[in-house]
Amino acid sequence: MTDLVSHRFDAIGTRWSIDTSLPLDASLVEAVADRVERFDRDWSRFRPDSLVARIASTAGRTILPDDAPGLLDVYRRLYAATDGAVSPLVGRTLSDWGYDEHYSLVPAPRISSVPSWDDAISWHGRSIETFRPVTLDVGAAGKGYLADILSALLSRAGVDEHTVDGSGDIVHRAPRALRVALEHPRDATKAIGIVDLSTGAIGASASNRRVWRGAHHILDAVTGRPASAVIASWAIAATGIEADGLATALIVGDPSRLAEHFDFEWVRMLADGTIERSAGFTGQIFAHQTVADRISAHRAAAHEGAA
């Protein structure tokens, strides 16, 4: 797409853009706004009038919106592939850490543990039964899923070539590849690499966003604490929900386990600056030490020592 036109808006706590070759007509702009509002009203844990807020208030059975089965499928696979480290049940624990509806950013004296899936809920398609009041949080994959939903809405309206960007979680549908920079998690003016995204999606996750008083918004649901070993990750997949969810999972999970459940490529940066990437990643990594570099250096040093 050349000479792109951007439709920009704020949604679910971040900045969005939809890039197309022609401006969206007024009815389509309204349809996008309506669909975003519906998604937020259903899934936001920051709104007192949301479905998530109602579920959190009491245990029982609730009929979920028609987009729920897609969320269930991806979350259940992420939960299994990370041994519970990625979970939609982290909402209460995130609130205790200070990432609550008031954005207090002040951790509570006691941090609630994240309940296990089968002990807390039974979720089948559009029906969820909670055995106790629980606060759902779909932030691990929600931006990517909303990008998918908006992409499908555009396609149904005849806008087949488009890019939906939710602040780094991107769904791209166009013949020409989109060049995406991988932002350095410790310096937003730099990139650690680039990737050319063909039709598909890329998700990004980093612990330098939404940071406060020694905490951040990416929790390991097993420990109930902010993740620390991995500080940034990127996942490339067919859909936005998978790319977004996998980027989160790469912060707390084992890539080889994730590859048993999903088809994707990935890059991630560890806390010591080491960069790991999948064997099939075709982008460019800049002058940073990767795991492969470390292995080569170690072998060279061993060879010199043996000579």
Rank of each mutant, 00 (worst) to 15 (best):
Y79F: 14
R176Q: 12
I121N: 13
D169G: 00
R179H: 01
G84M: 06
P175A: 06
V134E: 04
D165I: 01
G91I: 07
I121Y: 14
R179E: 06
L89I: 08
A174S: 13
T163N: 03
V138Q: 00
L153H: 06
L182K: 09
V86D: 03
V195I: 11
V171T: 02
A188Y: 11
I192T: 04
D137N: 04
R173A: 12
G144L: 13
L153C: 04
D100K: 03
D118R: 14
S95T: 06
H172P: 06
R76H: 14
T135Q: 13
E101W: 12
P133Y: 12
V180I: 15
V90P: 00
G125H: 15
L182Q: 05
R179S: 11
L105G: 03
D118Q: 14
G166Y: 14
S151C: 08
T93Y: 05
R77Q: 13
P185W: 05
S122W: 15
V159N: 00
R92G: 00
S116D: 13
G125F: 15
Y145A: 11
E161M: 07
G158R: 12
L182D: 06
Y99C: 04
R176S: 11
D96A: 02
E183A: 09
V195F: 14
L72M: 07
A177W: 09
G91D: 07
T163H: 08
G98D: 05
G142L: 05
G98K: 00
L150I: 04
Y103K: 01
